[in-house]
């Protein structure tokens, strides 16, 4: 049984201008000990998707459909009381900005103990012992003293360690990391990613890594979802995705990265701006920026269909197989020749 299984998830917000479909048609399954990378730009719906999975979208403003199975238990429609039992115990979450994600007027220890006391029937003393223990595990030096410090006394990297500690203190089976290293320096990012890798090995948890950084995904993920305009546009095993992307947006993303061995050359750019979640285009969400746009793209959303390249490789695109193959091979050749020329 997968640790987390999401089927046809959709989140719709009530706004002054009527209903707005922020996310729809998201499905994936994630096994224990595995990592799912979720890539997307601003407005892709990647954060909304996982706030929905956590049950953290306000039911007064949002309407959710589909299915979220955590260890086989349905989360959508579960009572608020049950959701609270699950959040922070079976599924933990860390966020992008460690500077603002901790309460500034409570000590680190208090905030870690709170996580323990919500879910375990233990004394405050025992909770404190667990807090010091987990701080040690996330490699915070002198954890028995630092536990009494306030967040502002920690550096950004250290605060993200504290956030990880807080998410893991009740040994969850799934950890959702929403851009956990975006706000950090590159050497600190390396530390945090290595720490997460080690903790995953030790605790065998499933990790969802939401990020805009294809490099992070390439290094950590087993499977990847590419999101655009509130839809999953491509989904594959990490090697298949990077070796044989099927969809123009994914091509564009890979091409727009400043590449290692192609200094100075022109980047392939995607024209225009990422769409706003509140006002998505009709048809394929990528059609206003796509170089291969056809009439059908402006009216019909392409189905998520299976690719022959790779086992569980899905994508959305109206282009026929032959054109896609030809185009990707040409692009790939260009990239490779750039690499060779350098």
């Amino acid at each position: 049984m997968p640790a987390l299984e999401v089927k046809d998830l959709a989140t719709t917000f009530h706004t002054d201008d009527g209903l707005v479909k922020a996310v729809s048609g998201v499905s994936f399954s994630l096994d224990q000990g595995k990592t799912l990378g979720v890539v997307g730009e601003s407005g892709s719906g990647k954060s909304v998707t996982f706030l929905t999975v956590m049950g953290l979208v306000d039911p007064r403003h949002a309407q959710v459909s589909g299915s979220v199975l955590l260890n086989g238990e349905e989360m959508l429609g579960a009572s608020q009381a049950r959701l609270r039992q699950i959040r922070g115990a079976t599924i933990g979450m860390i966020f992008q900005d460690p500077m603002t994600s901790l309460n500034p007027v409570k000590t680190i220890g208090w905030q870690l103990e709170e996580a323990v006391l919500i879910h375990q029937d233990v004394t405050r003393k025992e909770a404190r012992r667990q807090a010091i223990e987990i701080l040690k595990e996330v490699e915070i030096p002198r954890s028995d003293q630092r536990v009494d410090d306030y967040p502002h006394q920690f550096s950004g990297g250290m605060r993200q360690r504290v956030m990880i500690a807080m998410a893991l203190i009740n040994n969850p089976e799934v950890l959702i990391a929403d851009e956990p290293t975006t706000a950090l320096d590159v050497t600190t990012q390396a530390q945090i990613l290595r720490l997460m890798g080690r903790l995953q090995q030790e605790h065998q948890m499933a990790i969802v890594m939401v990020t805009h950084d294809l490099g992070v995904v390439a290094e950590l993920a087993n499977d990847v979802i590419v999101m655009y305009g509130g839809k999953v546009v491509e989904q594959a095993n990490v090697d298949d995705l990077f070796a044989r992307p099927e969809m123009p947006y994914t091509w564009g993303l890979l091409g727009s990265l400043p590449r290692l061995n192609a200094e100075g050359s022109r980047l392939e750019q995607i024209p225009g701006q990422p769409p706003s979640l509140l006002n998505p285009p009709r048809g394929c969400p990528f059609n206003p920026r796509c170089a291969f746009v056809m009439d059908v793209c402006r009216t019909d959303l392409p189905e998520l269909r299976r690719s022959d390249n790779g086992e569980e490789h899905y994508f959305r695109c109206h282009l026929d197989d032959e054109t896609r193959t030809r185009t990707w091979e040409a692009k790939h050749a260009a990239l490779v020749s750039k690499d060779a020329a350098a």
Binding site: T187, Q189, A190, R194, V238, D239, F242, L257
Partner: peptide, 26 residues
């Protein structure tokens, strides 16, 4: 250390890369 800390957007290269991870903060 800076160079080796940058994740590489190529799965095979990325996994096999030899990384120098610095201790502590600036």
């Amino acid at each position: 250390a800076l160079l080796s800390a940058v994740p590489i957007a190529e799965p095979a290269l990325g996994r096999s890369r030899r990384q120098i991870v610095l201790e502590g903060d600036v």
